[in-house]
């Protein structure tokens, strides 16, 4: 870890001003940043501690029916918030399916959005990687593994975004509140993360110095409370990144699907949402055929990056069907003992 300058911001304005200097990084819980600094993957010269910024850790149900979660709220606090668990159950379930209790107790909501890919060629700090070192190439391309992308990748980067939390957020049309030199703005989560394209080094829409201050879930998100699930297929029962995951949410009206939401994790460099797949379900009865059709559409554009991740396309279809089926069956009264596990879904 390089010897960095440490400063503690006392206000958002203070933090933003400090971050104007190049080579700056915001430190919240540090569960990802400190890990990356230890690995020499990222070497900020200035670390701006934002953990004490006032007013950024609240979870607030607002009069208009929306929910605002401060960027410094801890993952575990959000998951355990009774209103969140009741109203946005798949958000709570996704949070509880991520990492370990220790990491969730520390990690913040903003940090979760900002976490970097787990691509081995990115984290090893030496392989060619266009994210780490623009123009150096993508070492993963010639040896894709099961964690690599099958959607939205480019010849410059085939990494995936590791977050569970962002998947239901994307499905529920969450927005990200951002503050910077130029003032405040709000961006939809589905547009917050950038696909790699020609510039994998640009991972989000954040401009230098901009800070994520909050997340909001719109009032409409609450209508899915009764029929929403997050499903995460893993290589071990807990404490593992998703091989493939999906958030599925439905509104049901007289035996017909009103609205459907479907987003995937583990497939791309951002939570992957396919509006056409969601649209295909509208007005249909929640049947295996309808779900299979939606899954087919959702994976229509999928393209494996190698032999090792080819299975994820079919797996993702099945995960979608299972998540939708489970959502149709109704949100369970209590989050299962094994959150989001296939073995916890029943």
């Amino acid at each position: 870890m390089i010897l960095f300058d440490y400063s503690r911001a006392s206000s958002v304005a203070d933090a933003i001003a400090a971050a104007r200097q190049p080579g700056s990084a915001f430190l919240a819980a540090g569960t990802n940043l400190v890990d990356l600094m230890k690995g020499g993957v990222t070497n900020p010269e200035r670390v701006i501690d934002i953990t004490r910024l006032p007013g950024l850790s609240g979870i607030e149900a607002r009069a208009d029916g929306s929910l605002r979660i401060g960027a410094l709220a801890r993952n575990s606090d959000v998951a355990d918030d009774p209103h969140v668990a009741r109203t946005y159950p798949m958000v709570a379930e996704a949070l509880l399916a991520g990492a370990s209790a220790q990491l969730r107790n520390a990690a913040t909501v903003g940090g979760n959005l900002m976490q970097r890919t787990r691509c081995q060629y990115f984290t090893d700090a030496v392989s060619p990687c266009n994210k780490r070192q623009p123009g150096s190439g993508c070492a993963a391309l010639g040896h894709a593994t099961r964690i690599h992308a099958v959607q939205g990748w480019s010849e410059h980067c085939i990494a995936t975004h590791p977050s569970d939390f962002c998947v239901p957020l994307a499905a529920l049309d969450a927005s990200v509140e951002i503050e910077g030199q130029g003032g405040k703005r709000s961006v939809k989560l589905t547009e917050f993360h950038l696909l790699p394209g020609d510039h994998p080094e640009r991972e989000t829409v954040l401009e230098p110095g901009e800070l994520v201050t909050a997340l909001t879930l719109p009032a409409e998100a609450a209508q899915f409370a009764g029929n929403a699930r997050y499903l995460k297929v893993r290589d071990r029962t807990s404490y593992a990144f998703a091989v493939v995951s999906a958030a599925a949410a439905l509104t049901l009206d007289g035996g017909r699907i009103g609205q459907a939401r479907l987003a995937f994790g583990g497939l791309a460099l951002k939570p992957w949402r396919v509006p056409e797949a969601e649209g295909s379900l509208a007005g249909k009865a929640p049947s295996p055929e309808a779900f299979a059709e939606a899954a087919r559409i959702a994976l229509d554009s999928a393209k494996p990056t190698g032999e090792a991740n080819a299975f994820k396309v079919e797996l993702a279809r099945r995960v979608a069907v299972r998540a939708l089926t489970s959502a149709a069956a109704g949100t369970p009264a209590r989050i299962p003992a094994l959150p989001a596990s296939p073995f916890g879904l029943v």
């Binding site: 540090g30 230890k38 370990s100 990491l103 520390a106």
Partner: peptide, 27 residues
Amino acid sequence: CDRGQCGACTVLVDGRRINACLQLAVS
């Protein structure tokens, strides 16, 4: 592991269990 992957460093900070290896003391 020193990287938040094993839990051997678990302590309670402000009453909550966390991985001590990933917390900068200064913070």
